[in-house]
C-alpha cells in the first residue's frame, strides 16, 4: 500500500526492482544446481521445480491436498474464534474475571502447541479432528489476547460519556466496544492464520494426517526431490496468499480506523 501514495513512475520502478530481486534469487538457485555446487539429486534446478509445479497444478491431487490442509486450517480458526472472541470480550470488560484467569492464560499461552501433538493423536486419531483440535488450541491464545487488549483499550472517556447519556448496554457494545476492538481482533485473526498453517503442515508431516505436509513427506521418501520442492513452494505460496487475503480484507473493512489510515499515509 505504501506505493499507493507514490506517483505512477516511481511505482513502475519499484515493480522493476522487485522483479529484479526475485529473478536474482531464482537465478542464483538455478546456477548452484546447474554448476553442481549443490548435488543435483538433492537440489534440482529451480526451473525443473516450476515445471513440476506446473504439471501438478493441472492435476487434481494437488488441489485435494491443498483442500485438506485448508479445511483443518479453517475449522481450527473458526472454532478458536467462536470460543476466544466472546471470552475475550467478557474478560476485557470484567476486571475481576481477568485477574482470576490471568495466571492460567499466562501459563497456557507460551506452552508450545506442538507439544500437544501426541496427546491429540491419542485422543483424536490422525485425521481432521486431530488437526482441528491442535489448530484451535494454538490459535485460541492470540485471538483471546488481542480481543482482551482491544476491549481494554477502549477509550474510557467515550465509555463514560455513553454511560452519562444513558446509552443502553447493547448500544455501548455495538457503538463503542466493537468498533474500537475490531482492529485488534483482526490482527489476532491474521496472526492465528499464520500459526494455523504452520500447525496444519506440522501435523501432516509428523503424524501423517492427509494434506500438503504428508504429500511432501511422500515425495521425499519416494526420492522425488523435484516434486518435494514443488510442494514446498506450494506451501509457501499458500501461506503468502492467506496472509495477503487477511491484509486485504483488514484494509477494506477497517479503512476508517486511524491505525489503518496511518499505515497508508506512511
Amino acid at each position: 500500500m505504501r506505493s499507493s501514495v507514490s506517483p505512477a513512475p516511481a511505482r513502475f520502478t519499484d515493480l522493476g526492482i522487485r522483479i529484479a530481486g526475485v529473478c536474482t534469487v531464482l537465478a542464483v538457485f538455478e546456477l548452484t544446481a546447474r554448476t553442481g555446487l549443490l548435488p543435483r539429486a538433492w537440489f534440482p534446478p529451480i526451473s525443473e521445480m516450476y515445471l513440476e509445479l506446473g504439471k501438478l497444478a493441472f492435476g487434481w491431487p494437488l488441489w485435494v491436498e491443498i483442500g485438506r490442509t485448508l479445511s483443518g486450517w479453517a475449522l481450527g480458526i473458526g472454532l478458536a474464534a467462536v470460543l476466544a472472541i466472546p471470552l475475550g470480550i467478557a474478560l476485557g470488560t470484567n476486571n475481576l474475571a481477568y485477574r482470576l484467569s490471568k495466571a492460567v492464560i499466562e501459563f497456557l499461552r507460551p506452552v508450545p502447541s506442538v507439544a500437544l501433538i501426541p496427546l491429540a493423536v491419542l485422543v483424536y486419531g490422525t485425521g481432521l479432528e486431530m488437526k482441528t483440535f491442535l489448530i484451535a488450541f494454538a490459535t485460541f491464545w492470540p485471538i483471546l489476547l488481542q480481543t482482551i487488549y482491544g476491549v481494554q483499550g477502549v477509550d474510557p472517556v467515550a465509555m463514560d460519556t455513553a454511560r452519562c447519556y444513558g446509552l443502553p448496554q447493547s448500544a455501548r457494545f455495538t457503538q463503542i466496544i466493537a468498533p474500537s476492538a475490531a482492529p485488534f481482533i483482526a490482527t489476532g485473526l491474521r496472526i492465528a492464520s499464520a500459526i494455523a498453517l504452520v500447525l496444519a503442515i506440522t501435523a501432516e508431516l509428523v503424524v501423517g494426517a492427509p494434506g500438503l505436509g504428508q504429500a511432501i513427506i511422500v515425495a521425499q521418501s519416494g526420492a522425488n526431490a523435484t516434486r518435494m520442492y514443488a510442494l514446498i513452494i506450494v506451501a509457501g505460496l499458500l501461506g503468502w496468499a492467506l496472509n495477503s487475503c487477511f491484509q486485504f480484507v483488514e484494509r477494506r473493512l477497517l479503512r476508517w480506523h486511524p491505525a489503518q489510515r496511518g499505515e497508508e499515509g506512511r
Binding site: W42, F43, A194, I201, L231, A235, G236, L238, G239
Partner: peptide, 24 residues
Amino acid sequence: TACEPVVEFLRALPAPALIPFALL
C-alpha cells in the same frame, strides 16, 4: 524493495515444510 517479495514468500512459508529439505 528488491528483497520484499522474497522476504514475504520465505516468511509465509511454514518452516516445518522445510524439514525434508533440511534433511536432504
